[in-house]
Design a protein around this nucleic acid. Structure first.
Lengths: 363, 363
DNA sequence: CTGTTAGCGCCTTCAA
DNA sequence: TTGAAGGCGCTAACAG
């Protein structure tokens, strides 16, 4: 089946004794075909193993049945979160009969041009959006169908899917505060990204600060490169400089392993001495729970939603622009309050006592 | 630039005052064009923002400038390793001016047909190869260009890139034995995959057994589903049933977190009581070292090699078939010999003593 | 209901 | 060195 060298629609037509047009009609269903002929055509297609050439069809249709996933690499390494998007978008696209072109682009200008001007994709799913994003502006100006995962400062005119940062940070911070934590820190991405107005970071910071203010606790922000080494080094500094700190909110997935180790190497226990909440992919969280409370990044849900919106738009240009906020699921680990009442310098003294953590003994 | 609605080669030709043929010639360079005209053409292309329609070009050329990455999902979840392939293949392909179509296929028959019969891709990179693989057979029968990441039982007639399992297992097992371990286990994937003749698993088992035999140590094999929960449960059973076990070789990346936790929850220390060597992605290994010795899975190197071979073949059909073995880099953690001389039942007694692991105290 | 004609946008003969 | 004509394989518009 389909193992044949080169079967065109002409071969099928000749085999049945009709014109190529009729075969085309039978396949696309865009015009009526007599039941008898349609059956003979279908049989011939089966026998000859015919499949329409996608390029010829794309040329005739003016569209390629392909959506592109544009992933600018912020730095060299990809987080698990970003990679999960690929899988979820690919799967969602497949169920709607779209192919997926991935573009890990360093040069967005060129990549966009390939996709749009060369007509390689009918629509685009955009990752890693900035508050001011030239890609978004350009796509909107062109009227090219796209969905942003993340959103610009004023996203009213576009389709997007994003995390509900406000509710997420409120939920995380208020959770720590309810447990008795009074001094917490946000371990974020590098300052450079913030300066470039990387949207998730901006919204996270604003939401974190806002939550801390409303709840009356001190919340500092630590900038940290997106890798484990930086996480280790920066967190070690943080813990050494601020002995009153008892709660960490980590939104830098790639740094998380380092944070984890820094806490351990400082002789502190999780969660008794320091409670850590991490926003990360579900695989990491599986690993880190029960010591960690994890906000599981909803890559799969977001990827699916993006493709759904994009496919709808490709099918019908008349839709209103859509935005969708998604709240990550929070998997509660063994978070507890600080071992001593926060405010006393007791936290670090436990270190000298050399207590055991074997077996993750609870209480 | 390139922001224009629809610029065809005709527009460029008209703008310059030559025929489309000449413009085409200037672009492809497949026939001489006067220097003066070529310059005017290039300027017009720049001004008008012209880019050749990829579908039309593909139709005329008979090839699409696209390679496909075919990723059968063995189970639901993708390991970090598999996902790294996507990134490395995409990057390598980009530098050779190929687009990458990803296909996370459940139904390979259909996916292959889309790619080959519908001419969506010029070549294929195949992941997750089995010893007998119908995809390989079919692609070979068709003479369709492809590179397998992994290899069939007798891969002489195909292009492939694979791990050097023999040398890897020898190196891992002999390393443990040199440290004094006499009883070790391989934590592998599920039995189902082995039965289906999943190639990496077969080769790993054979190499592991062979190394154990040559070195005169007992090496058992534990089958384990590819997720953290199974890793935890199965490893806990293993440790409980075999108190003499002191060394683990884990080739199941998705189970590794569970293995790690099982060791901790059994009250055993790594590496003093149990030495663990894991074959996993570099991000995991960053997290796990220093307690773990890691064989870093060379996804990036393999992805690059695959694209390189494939691109060469697409450029020139006359090449001899190529195979390439790659040996993972081994990052040595704190592996040590067993705490007591192997052979005595001492390993487990340490548990009752309730010693501390705080700060990963060395010695 | 079906066939003929024309065109999607590019490339490649073949003449000039 | 250049242009005109024809084709890649399919679909859309128009007759019949």
């Amino acid at each position: 089946m389909g193992t044949t060298g080169r079967v065109r629609i002409y071969e099928v037509a000749a085999h049945v004794g009709v014109s190529p047009t009729t075969v085309s009609a039978a396949i696309t269903g865009k015009r009526p075909v007599a039941e008898a002929t349609r059956q003979r055509i279908e049989q011939a297609i089966e026998e000859l193993g015919y499949r329409a050439n996608a390029n010829a069809r794309a040329l005739a249709y003016g569209s390629s049945g392909t959506i592109a996933l544009l992933i600018p690499s912020l730095e060299k390494s990809l987080s698990q979160i970003e990679l999960e998007f690929v899988a979820s978008v690919a799967e969602a696209a497949r169920s709607r009969e779209y192919d997926v072109l991935v573009s890990f682009s360093g040069d967005d200008e060129l990549a966009l041009s390939r996709l749009i001007d060369e007509r390689r994709a009918d629509g685009i799913v955009l990752l890693e959006v900035f508050l001011d994003d030239f890609r978004v502006e350009r796509l909107r100006a062109l009227g090219f169908p796209f969905v942003a995962i993340g959103r610009t400062a004023r996203p009213s005119g576009i389709d997007w899917v994003d995390i509900d940062f406000e509710r997420l940070q409120w939920s995380l911070v208020s959770g720590l505060v309810a447990l008795g934590h009074r001094r917490i820190a946000l371990i974020s991405g590098p300052y450079d990204l913030l300066k470039r107005r990387y949207a998730p970071q901006h919204r996270t910071h604003r939401a974190f600060k806002s939550a801390c203010t409303k709840l009356g606790v001190q919340g500092d922000i630590l900038y940290c490169e997106r890798n484990a080494e930086a996480g280790l080094r920066r967190t070690a500094e943080l813990l050494a400089n601020d002995k009153m700190l008892t709660g960490l909110v980590v939104v830098n997935e790639l740094a998380l392993p380092g944070v984890y180790r820094a806490v351990a190497e400082a002789g502190l226990r999780m969660p008794e001495d320091v409670s850590v909440i991490g926003q990360c992919d579900s695989k990491w969280s599986t690993f880190l729970v029960p010591r960690l409370t994890a906000a599981q990044f909803p890559s799969i849900e977001m990827g699916r939603a993006a493709v759904e919106i994009l496919a709808d738009r490709l099918a019908d240009r008349a839709l209103a622009r859509r935005g969708r906020l998604i709240l990550p699921t929070i998997v509660a680990g063994e978070s507890t309050g600080p071992a001593r009442v926060a405010g006393s310098p007791e936290r670090r003294t436990r270190r000298a006592q050399g207590h055991s953590t074997a077996g993750h003994a609870r209480q």
